[in-house]
Amino acid sequence: MQASFLRSTAVRSTALAIAVLVPIALAGCMWRPQEPITHAPRADVGLHSASREPCPGCLERKGPDGQTVYLRRRPLLSAQHIAAVSKVIDIGGGYAIQLDFKPEVQDRVRSVSEEQIGELIAWVAQERVLSVAVNRGVFSSGMLLSGITAEEADQIYTAMTGDPTQRRPSLER
């Protein structure tokens, strides 16, 4: 009698586990990440070496934080290096801008990013500074501007692409 009770308990436990876990597993298999909102860059988009201190020949601009930033006149990278600009959700679940670089320039992009590690860089479009950050790593095929709000993502995306869409990737997974 005890063996039959244990067997029926085991069968019920297994059936319950299957009833609960299979739908969860299937839901995970059916989840597809949302497509990013993508557009080509405007012709005037550029990544500049930047400084918080005045420098000879540098352009003085206000950053998005309102602080003055000084930009080297010649961009390190420009729209001709960028294949696409996208509004995406980053790995932490926040809004971000993803820049994908053209395959044929990825060696140049890698070289530029290596030279700029630890240095201040700024993305600029329409003569407006869109983001200022210290470069923390090497990139070649793409880079992510993260740690921004949905509104900042909209503004940066529109400035970089000219596409005024207010559509956003969903934070729902």
Rank of each mutant, 00 (worst) to 15 (best):
4 S>V: 11
5 F>H: 13
7 R>D: 07
11 V>S: 06
16 L>Q: 07
16 L>E: 05
17 A>I: 01
22 V>P: 02
22 V>E: 07
25 A>F: 11
28 G>S: 09
28 G>R: 11
33 P>V: 03
34 Q>L: 05
35 E>K: 14
43 A>M: 09
44 D>C: 08
45 V>Q: 05
47 L>K: 03
52 R>Y: 01
55 C>K: 08
58 C>Q: 05
59 L>S: 13
61 R>W: 00
64 P>C: 11
71 L>A: 10
75 P>N: 06
76 L>H: 08
76 L>C: 10
76 L>G: 05
77 L>K: 06
78 S>N: 15
79 A>F: 03
83 A>Q: 15
84 A>Q: 15
86 S>M: 11
91 I>T: 05
91 I>K: 12
93 G>I: 11
94 G>P: 03
100 D>S: 13
101 F>C: 15
101 F>D: 14
108 R>M: 14
108 R>T: 13
111 S>N: 13
111 S>C: 03
112 V>G: 12
117 I>M: 11
117 I>C: 08
120 L>W: 03
123 W>L: 14
133 A>E: 08
136 R>E: 12
137 G>I: 01
137 G>K: 04
140 S>A: 14
144 L>I: 05
147 G>T: 01
149 T>E: 04
153 A>H: 01
153 A>I: 03
155 Q>Y: 01
160 M>V: 06
160 M>W: 04
165 T>G: 01
169 P>W: 11
172 E>A: 13
